[in-house]
Every structure is written in C-alpha cells, then in structure tokens.
C-alpha cells in the first residue's frame, strides 16, 4: 500500500466519524460517496460528488469533503485514466486539494493536501518533459501548458521552491523544439526562429553559463547567416538586395561568435566548437583567426588520434 493510501485509510475512518458526529447536517450521499471510494469504485465515487453538493450544500464549505474529492479525482486519473497526459482530472484533483487547504482553518489536512498538490505537480512536469524528450513538436503547446500548471501547483505546495534550474532546462527544451520545427520548413516557419532564440535567451538570462543554450545559439546564428546567402539570396536578386542580405548574414555571423567563444572557454577540447569558431572567422573574412582555429582543430584531432 502506498504512502498516500495508508494516510487516506486513516483519513477515511476519521472522516466517517467526523461526519457522523460533526455539527454539519448528516449527508447520506456523502456516506455513499465514501463507501464507493473505499471499495475502489472510483468512477462511481466521482459521480456522487455533484450529488453531494446538490443534496448537502453545506459540504461546499467542508475541507474534509474537498480533501476526499481530491483523492477520488486523483485515483480516477491514476487507475481509470491510466495517468493520461492530457487528462483534466488531475487538474480537478489539484483544485479539490487547493479548495480543501483554503477551507481548512484548523489545518487538519494541510500537510497532506500540500504533499498531494506537489504530487500532482510532478505529473505535469514529467508530462511536459516527455514531450520535449520525444521531440514531439506537435504537442509543444501542451508542454508549455503542463509546465505552467506544474509551476502554479509547485508555488502553492512549496512557496520557497527555486525554479531557476528547471526554468533553464525547460526554456532550453522549448527553444530546441522551436528550432526543430523551424528546420523542418525554414521558408514558412521563419517566425518560429524568433521564438527559438527567445527561449534560448530566456534560459541564458537565468544561467548565462548554460553550455547547451550558448552552443546552440552560436551554431544557429552562423547557420542563419549561411542560410541567408545559400538559400534566401536569389541569384537573380538585384545588387541592392545582394548587399542588404550580405549585411544581414554578417550580422548573424557576428552574433554567433560570442556564444561559441563562451563554450570554447568551457570545453576547449571540443572539436565541434573549434570547427564552428573557425567557420565563423572564415565567414567574417578574418583569415588570420580562421587559420589560428584551424590549427587548433588539427592539433586536437591529431591528439585524439594518438
């Protein structure tokens, strides 16, 4: 039996007695609801929630009732819906626990409600991460929505929680999804590129030393410059356009360099970084620096071959 189940059994027993002896009106529907829940008829138990509220309106103000409703929804989510990512039931569960906290003046269920909200928040977080891990670009909006739900719940269950590390990772992950979507159709998905850059920059605003965001921005800016010339610059373009697009490309090349230099400081032995820097210098026509980094690259490659 899980930790929560053990606690719930105690809570249910307590709840039955408190219901019988409490000053609130006796509510047979609520007893039925508890019975259904105890016998693991989660869907049936859920069906009684509205009945209880309509037949026993004073339950709306009952912290214990909402606490149990949270459990019922949570178990529907876990055992009936098999923890389906898009399920609205876990949100309902969290809402019930929040209502319970708000009504629980004596803080009888406060700790457990908090733990359960935290527990639900973890589902949201992991569902968001699953989308990022699978590079599931179609569900990118869901990843954002799940992550925001995670944050909202976590802020309730743990007001002092430090989101920095997760924000860095998540912004990076979303940025990379935008990048993948952009690369699937560069011509029609140009706007996604700005979103990608924004998210990677958001990640760096929190942690400027984050390797992957720096690395990807460095490579991406260089590739953007190359793409402008190789893919966007029409060979029949007039001279003004040629000059204008070259200007845009050079701007991208210049933006690339600080990011690559930063990751080079972090990983000076990484050949792909050295190769990237050499390429940027080549694109900027700084041949002296290009040769310098090509020599470093040769040295690294010969050392790795030894």
């Amino acid at each position: 039996m899980s930790f929560f189940k053990k606690i719930l059994s105690t809570v249910l027993i307590f709840g039955v007695f408190s219901n019988i002896f409490s000053q609130s009106t006796y509510c047979p529907e609520k007893m039925l609801l508890l019975q259904k829940y105890k016998s693991k008829e989660y869907e049936n138990a859920r069906g009684y929630i509205d009945t209880v509220l309509s037949q026993c309106p004073d339950q709306i103000q009952d912290a214990y009732f909402w606490h149990v409703c949270g459990f019922i929804n949570l178990d529907v989510f876990k055992y009936v819906e098999n923890k389906e990512a898009g399920s609205p039931t876990k949100a309902k569960a969290a809402d019930c626990f929040i209502k319970s906290i708000n009504l629980d003046i004596e803080k009888k269920y406060f700790d457990l409600n908090n733990k359960l909200i935290d527990y639900v928040s973890t589902f949201y977080y992991n569902d968001a991460v699953k989308i990022l891990q699978k590079f599931d670009t179609k569900n990118q909006e869901n990843a954002l929505s799940y992550y925001n739900s995670f944050k909202k719940l976590k802020e309730i269950s743990n007001p002092d929680y430090d989101f920095r590390e997760k924000e860095v990772d998540f912004n990076f992950g979303i940025g990379m999804l935008y990048k993948m979507r952009y690369e699937k159709d560069k011509t029609n998905n140009k706007s996604l590129l700005d979103s990608c850059i924004n998210y990677l920059n958001k990640s760096l605003e929190i942690d400027s030393d984050q390797y992957s965001a720096n690395y990807n921005l460095g490579i991406m800016y260089h590739n953007l410059g190359v793409d402008i010339i190789m893919e966007e610059l029409d060979i029949d373009a007039d001279l003004e356009m040629v000059i204008l697009m070259q200007e845009q490309a050079v701007n991208y090349f210049s933006k690339s360099l600080p990011f690559l230099k930063k990751v080079y400081q972090m990983k000076p032995q990484e050949t792909s970084i050295v190769q990237g820097i050499a390429a940027v210098y080549y694109s900027l026509n700084d041949m002296e620096k290009h040769v310098e980094y090509m020599n470093i690259l040769k040295e690294l490659e010969s050392n790795s071959g030894e």
């Binding site: 527990y119 973890t122 589902f123 977080y125 992991n126 991460v129 699953k130 990022l132 891990q133 590079f135 997760k166 990772d169 998540f170 990076f172 992950g173 990379m176 992957s212 690395y215 990807n216 490579i219 260089h222 590739n223 410059g225 190359v226 010339i229 190789m230 490309a249 792909s272 190769q275 990237g276 050499a278 390429a279 940027v280 080549y282 694109s283 090509m294």
Partner: peptide, 30 residues
C-alpha cells in the same frame, strides 16, 4: 515520482552534434 529532465540534455546534445558536421564547408560555399 521523480523528475525526468536530466535525460533531456543528453538527447539534445546528441542531435545537435549530429547536425554541425563540417562547419567550414557551408561557410566556404556561401
């Protein structure tokens, strides 16, 4: 339940490192 994010970076790094082979060639072509 445990957080799954640590796996994320490995996968992204693998993907990105596969896409940047020979940076100088496109630079030369442009």
């Amino acid at each position: 339940r445990r957080f799954k994010i640590p796996l994320l970076f490995g996968l992204f790094l693998l993907i990105t490192s596969l896409t940047i082979v020979s940076q100088t060639d496109p630079a030369k072509a442009s």
